[in-house]
Structures are given as structure tokens and as C-alpha cells.
Write a protein that binds this DNA or RNA. Structure first.
Lengths: 150, 150
DNA sequence: ATTAAGTCTATAATATTGATAGACTTTGCT
DNA sequence: AGCAAAGTCTATCAATATTATAGACTTAAT
């Protein structure tokens, strides 16, 4: 049930952009340096996100990437679906990569996996980049205070 | 976030055994034939499950596999952890495959993935093979009636 | 002794993941 | 005009994980 590095990197890059949403274009090089991500790999990831309408890019000198929409309007679910393809544990309960199966209707395994898919989607489709940014602030506070729910 | 075929096959085999829990030993060949699973592959899967204490095996003539415990005491979470290794989307929020990370404490991505892990675990650690068997019955009923929640 | 079962070791084929190289295009700046 | 800095595109690669299969071995019932 693991998330790919691709998606992991994507989320980190998007969070970086999200926290600098006011600032305009940010270069790949800066993101990869700050977040310690492999530059060329990140390049292809950001390209996919742009093609999916999540990022906006500016070519040429002083170019770079920025969020195509405000952080409130980009969910983690959307991002993961672009890069990993589906949130679902099996394709018979997937929205984006649905594949039918003859046994489908009476399949008990499927029925549980449906629940799993929904549980995952409930978290990821309701968490936006804005929420992620807020968590950064909250986590920093509780880190300083040594507090937190653990 | 996909489940491996290995785990998928395992769940189907276990459900098969679960529905025949009274019956004593069942042979690999029967399971693979009825559930249409590759015999040799299933063999290695069942072996892993036995080593993990989920199945009991009987050697020699009239041997075969049976559940090592009543179906009420085997959760899907346990099964998946044996074969896929973890329910968690990243190792920094995994119980069985935990790997620490320097950024861990203040990491917002981790914090969301923690939520995801918990959502997944809530379903899979609370669903047993007995529950799965019950679903088979329920699904069959609603199938016949043409009813159901869709 | 025979035979039907699981066990063990090794390996092969394929797919996926993670990553890089390099040529190309676009744009701002002087 | 021309340089430099940015993203774009195509191609490919290495490493790893997944999905299997083969075959020799062990155990136990009859």
C-alpha cells in the first residue's frame, strides 16, 4: 500500500510552492535544492503536474513553476491520482482505473476493499495543499512547545 | 496504493478455507482449481502464511491446509502485513516497517499519511475472516433479490 | 513400498520505479 | 542580434519488486 517516491516528491514540491504561493515563479533548481530532491526526476514530475493542470509554468528567463490554482483548490487525492494513478487497493474499486471483473457483484474481498478505498479517499480528497500548509505551522508550534497529541 | 496479487490470492484462499473451517485439511490443488489461482504461486503464499502462524498444515497423504485459528481471530490487516509488509503509505508511519526520518517531527506530509494509515488500519484490522465470510452470505442475498446499496 | 501431500531452493520473466542524459524551445535582458 | 536561463521532450537505463515456475526433497497414511 505504499506511496511512490514520485508522489512523495510531488507533495513536497507542491507544499513548497504552496507556502510561497504569493511569490510567483519558483525554479525547479531551487525546489530540488531546498527539499533535497533529484533535479531531473523532479523535472519530469512537475511536468506531469503541469499537464494535469495543477501547476502553471513560465518559460524562459525568470521562468519557473507556480500553482495553477489556489492551494485551497488542490487536494492530495488529485495529486496522487495524477502520478500514481489510483487511490484504490484494487482496480475493481477504482474510479480512475476501474476494471470490471466477472465476480464483482458477489465478491466479499472487493466489498472490503471498497471500504478501504473510501477510507483513503475520505482523507486524501478532503485534504488540500492549504490544509497541508496549515499543518506545517501547527507542527512547528507543538514542536517548539514540546507539546502535541503524539 | 495497490494491493499485490499475492495478497489478493491469499485473501481468496483464506476466505475459501474460512468457509470450510469445519472440514479439516484442504489441499492446495483444490483451492487453486476452485479459485482459479496459479498453483505453484499459491503454494509459496500458503507457506508464508503457515510460517506466520495463520495457517496450519498437515504433511503427507490426506494432508493440506487449515486455519491455525478460528476465522474470528484472523484479521485482514494481519494477512496483508505478512505478505505485503505494511499497511502504511510511507515507512515513517508504519508499525511493522518503521524507518525514522530526520524531518519526521515537523513533517506535514507525514502527518497526513499518518491519518491515511490509521484510516486503512481501522478497516483492515477490524475486519476478520469471519466478517468476510458473513459478507459472502449478505452479498449473495442482495444479489438474488436484485437489491443492495449500490 | 507407494503415493499423495507439503517444503525448500533456485531461478526466470516481466513490470514498475526511480533516475539521468541531452537536444530543443521559449523568453528576458542587454 | 545574441546570450543565458528557464522549462520541454524523447529516449533510455539501472535497480528493484512482482509474479510466477521447476524440480528435488520430506513427511505420513495405507
Amino acid at each position: 500500500m505504499k506511496l511512490s517516491k514520485k508522489t512523495d516528491y510531488a507533495l513536497r514540491a507542491l507544499l513548497y510552492l504552496s507556502l510561497r504561493h504569493e511569490r510567483g515563479s519558483v525554479q525547479i533548481k531551487e525546489i530540488s535544492a531546498e527539499e533535497k530532491l533529484p533535479t531531473k526526476f523532479l523535472e519530469s514530475i512537475l511536468l506531469s503536474l503541469r499537464k494535469a493542470g495543477i501547476l502553471h509554468s513560465k518559460l524562459g528567463l525568470n521562468g519557473g513553476y507556480s500553482l495553477a490554482r489556489p492551494p485551497e483548490q488542490i487536494t492530495l487525492g488529485e495529486v496522487i491520482r495524477v502520478l500514481d494513478g489510483t487511490l484504490a487497493p484494487m482496480s475493481c474499486v477504482s474510479r480512475v482505473e476501474y476494471e470490471s471483473c466477472p465476480e464483482e457483484i458477489g465478491c466479499a474481498v472487493r466489498s472490503v476493499m471498497q471500504d478501504v478505498r473510501n477510507a483513503i479517499a475520505r482523507v486524501l480528497d478532503e485534504t488540500t495543499l492549504a490544509d497541508l500548509s496549515k499543518r506545517v505551522v501547527l507542527l512547528r508550534k507543538s514542536q517548539v512547545r514540546g507539546a502535541g497529541v503524539s
